[in-house]
């Protein structure tokens, strides 16, 4: 189960785990089974190239597709960014500028009550983002707000502090 797979696969599985985060149960099982599926698909190829790996992952499908399908299978409503998620990002980033201290504080409260992020994301948001509050937001995109806003936020922090490790920014780029 812990056998190392190509970094491309590990990155894919990380994205998958993230996309499935709000499934009530069985997330771990699904990710483990898909990891095993990839292993089985690659084991028959003598020395898989990067394009072989990409091909296997393409056939499995994008994490967001699998997550959307899973939500329907589990009878859950589709994932949507609520106004609270948007407000949380906004306030955590610039709330302190608009309304000193209190604005940021409200933002953090909204962040922690939102279901859109994992605990780790929330910790990062709480501990790191005040330092990023003077950075401009990254460019917007048409991706779902909760994903895009958060990534923009992460980019903002990185631009300011430039302490982010290369590994993390590599990961970010591959999204």
């Amino acid at each position: 189960m812990t056998e190392t797979l190509p970094p491309l696969v590990e990155d894919y599985l990380r994205r998958l785990r993230r996309s499935l985060r709000d499934l009530p149960r069985g997330r771990r099982e699904i990710v483990d089974e898909i990891r095993e599926h990839v292993r089985e698909a690659l084991v028959v190829i003598p020395s898989p190239t990067e394009s072989d790996v990409r091909n296997v992952l393409d056939r499995i499908g994008e994490p967001y597709e699998i997550a959307a399908d899973a939500r329907e299978r589990f009878g859950m409503p589709p994932a949507r960014a609520t106004w609270i998620d948007v407000a949380a990002i906004f306030l955590v980033l610039v709330g302190g500028v608009v309304l000193p201290i209190l604005g940021w504080f409200i933002g953090v409260t909204l962040l922690w009550t939102s279901r859109a992020w994992t605990t780790r994301d929330k910790l990062v948001g709480t501990l790191l983002l005040p330092g990023g509050s003077s950075c401009p937001l990254g460019s917007g995109s048409s991706r779902p707000v909760q994903e895009a806003a958060w990534r923009s936020a992460n980019r903002g922090v990185r631009r300011c502090r430039s302490t982010a490790s290369r590994r993390r920014s590599m990961k970010e780029r591959s999204y």
């Binding site: 499935l20 149960r25 099982e29 699904i30 898909i34 499995i60 994008e62 597709e65 299978r73």
Partner: peptide, 16 residues
């Protein structure tokens, strides 16, 4: 099947 990965959540749900 269009995305092979969608089978796995399905299996999990059938089991549940």
């Amino acid at each position: 099947v269009t995305s092979e990965g969608t089978i796995y959540p399905l299996l999990t749900r059938l089991r549940r």
